[in-house]
Computed example of a mutant assay.
Amino acid sequence: MSEAAERLIREPWSDLGRQTEGATFGIWLFLASEMLFFGALILTYAVMRIDHPAAFAAAGRETNLVFGTLNTAILLTSSLTMAVASLAAKAEEDLRRLVIVCLALTAALGLAFMVVKGLEYREDIEKSLVPGPNFPLLQAPAQIFFALYWLMTGVHALHLSVGIVLVGRLALLGWRGRLEMRRSPEVEVTGLYWHLVDVVWVILYPIFYLPGRSG
C-alpha cells in the first residue's frame, strides 16, 4: 500500500477499499433513518390535511410562494453543482479546480437559501403566522398546518446548515490542497447528504406552498 493511501485510512479500518465501502454504507443507513423521521412528519401532515382540507388550503395561501419557489430553484441548482463536484472528484484526470469551484458554489447556494428563508420567517412572524393566541386565521386546524410548517422547515434548515458546514470544509481543504479526490469517499458521502436535504425540500415545497392555489 502506498504512503498516500495509508494517510487516508482512519481507525478502525486497515484497508482503504473497506473504509470507502463502510463510509458509503454508513451514510446510506443514516439517510434511511432521516427519511423515516421526515416520513413520519409527512404522514402526520397528510392525515391532518385529509381531516381538515379547507383549513389547510386557507393556511397554504398564506405562505409566500415567491420565497418558496426561489428557494426551490436555489436548492435544485445546488444539487447540480454538488453532483458535478462528486463526478469531477472521481474523474481520472485532474479536475481539482472544478471540484473546489463547485463545492464553493454549493455552499454559497446553501447560504443563499438560508438568507431567503430568514426573510420569509421574518415575514411570517410579522404576519403572526405562528400558532398561538394572536394567530390571524379563524380556522383552528390552520394552526396545525403552521405548527408542522415551522417544525419541518426548521428541521430542514438545521440539516442544511450542517450540510453547508460539511461542503464548506471540503472546499477549504481543496483550496489548501489537502483534499484527496479519487481515493477518498468524502466528496461522494457529503454529496449524498446534500441530495437528501434537497429531496426533502422538494417534498416540503408542494405540501406547504401549493395548497389552496390550484384555483
Rank of each mutant, 00 (worst) to 15 (best):
L98Q: 10
L138K: 13
F145G: 00
V189E: 06
M82K: 05
R61E: 08
R183V: 10
S161E: 04
S86T: 12
R178L: 13
R169V: 11
M48P: 11
A83T: 13
N134W: 15
T20K: 11
L158K: 07
A40N: 08
E6I: 11
Y205D: 01
A73F: 14
A83Q: 08
G132I: 09
P141L: 00
F30W: 14
L170W: 10
L173R: 10
I9C: 02
P131A: 02
E6L: 15
T190V: 14
G22Y: 00
G68F: 03
T20H: 11
V99M: 12
P206E: 00
G191D: 06
R18I: 13
F25G: 05
M181Q: 06
G168R: 01
I207N: 03
V199H: 04
G177F: 04
V197W: 00
V165P: 04
L196K: 05
R213A: 00
S214P: 11
V200E: 01
F146A: 01
R96L: 14
L210H: 00
I42R: 05
L179N: 09
A32M: 14
L103T: 04
N71L: 01
Y149V: 01
F38S: 05
L210S: 00
A23S: 08
A83L: 15
W194Y: 01
E126T: 08
E188K: 03
M181C: 05
R49N: 10
V101F: 10
H156T: 02
A91P: 04
G22M: 08
F25H: 07
I207E: 02
V197D: 00
V130S: 08
L43Y: 04
E180K: 08
E34H: 09
R97P: 07
G60R: 03
A4C: 10
S33E: 10
G39Y: 02
R18K: 15
G191Q: 05
F56H: 04
L138R: 10
Y45M: 13
H159L: 03
E11D: 08
R7P: 02
E62W: 09
Q143W: 02
L43K: 08
R213D: 01
Y193G: 07
R49H: 15
A4E: 10
M114D: 14
T81A: 03
L103Q: 06
V197A: 01
G110H: 07
S128E: 12
P211S: 05
N71P: 03
G168K: 04
R10Y: 08
